[in-house]
Design a protein around this nucleic acid. Structure first.
Lengths: 201, 201
DNA sequence: CCATGTTCGGACTGTACGTCCAGATCGGAC
DNA sequence: GTCCGATCTGGACGTACAGTCCGAACATGG
């Protein structure tokens, strides 16, 4: 029943994702696509994941970190799949090997951060990274890329940055504008609206 | 004479690199390839880079960080080019826009980061307290009260604050001046001297 | 008393901050 | 497609602030 979903996900995420379908009643593996470990159909699931899912009220859980024996680091999500009657019929787990992504990120970071002198920073000058990171987090949360942000998205990000005190540091506004792919004017407009909403909702 | 080198570099680094050739005698731009700012041939170089190169014994300098007015961040290297007689005939500067690299790195890092939680490390709002604290610590170390500070004492404190990045935040200078019981002018003077000593002890 | 070194106050310049607005652009509704 | 409202843009503008400069005041020590 759920097999096409699993196949589709594996097709999309290439060789770096493993999809496992568990039977919550027998606690065994129903099926596995692109296995990264030796597990196969019929093996016990031996997953604390299921317990965690039981306790939580939500059916979708993660992403959380898992580390394989060989050191590979996985980002994992789980979901309870229910039949039309509302009863759990399967548990879906997607495990994405993030090692190659981390390596690629390290390569790019090497290009991007080559300052030859690092004599100082007691307290971080890296508020720029912080801006980048805040935007990145929101992208991940919302599932939208910066280019596809709507007004509310930008407002939310600017709000977080403001509460983080970023705009108190000099020359911060152009940096934020660049990170949001937006003009300086727009940042000021969003900032004004955000502060306005705070005081008079 | 050096033009082919510049063209080659620009060709290699695509649209993200700017190459500028300066005349160290007249302090003007000799040529510019793929300009990222409005500078053009004949404009004054207005670069502290040249001074830095004079003082250093080396001919190649960097990479160091430069931030453009629009928020783009550049990795820059400079090199003194000499004629066969050993006299400086030009200064070469290569500026690489690292923004796209940082964005790509952020995207990958976003994939690789598994945590779903939102608690961002909040930016320090209490930099004012930090200033007070820094001054207070020095008072305790030296055994002198602020009013009895000598020039070297103030210099030391300003140095620490500068390295802590305090002067990057807006309206910080008056606060520091007040904490040191000193005029704004003096803070700037001390700051200038401290930064001067850093580069040429 | 002078000499030297430091700070002060204030005037001054340039840069960056923040505002504003007319025109471009986008996203839907029809 | 065409229209319209919402939103973003780029530039111009006024202002506030960062930083510089200098003559006068004020310490120190001889």
């Amino acid at each position: 029943m759920w097999a096409p979903v699993c196949q589709a996900v594996v097709l999309l995420l290439g060789p770096y994702a493993e999809v496992v379908l568990h039977d919550p009643r027998t606690d065994r593996v129903l099926g596995i696509w692109n296995p990264m470990t030796a597990r196969q159909h019929g093996d016990p699931s031996l997953l604390g994941e299921l317990d965690a899912l039981d306790q939580a009220k939500q059916d979708v859980y993660g992403p959380y970190l898992k580390v394989l024996a060989d050191g590979r680091r996985l980002s994992s999500v789980s979901a309870v799949l229910r039949d039309p009657g509302g009863e759990p019929s399967a548990v879906l787990c997607i495990n994405l090997d993030r090692t190659p992504l981390e390596e690629a990120a390290a390569v790019l970071a090497g290009f991007a951060a080559p300052t030859v002198q690092r004599p100082e920073p007691l307290f971080e000058q890296d508020w720029v990274d912080r801006v980048q990171h805040t935007v990145g987090s929101y992208v991940r949360e919302s599932g939208r890329r910066v280019e596809r942000f709507g007004r509310e998205d930008r407002l939310a990000v600017v709000g977080r940055l403001d509460e983080a005190g970023v705009f108190a540091v000099r020359r911060a506004t152009p940096v934020v504008a660049a990170a949001l792919k937006v003009s300086r004017s727009t940042v000021y407009a969003l900032l004004a609206e955000h502060r306005d909403r705070r005081t008079s909702p």
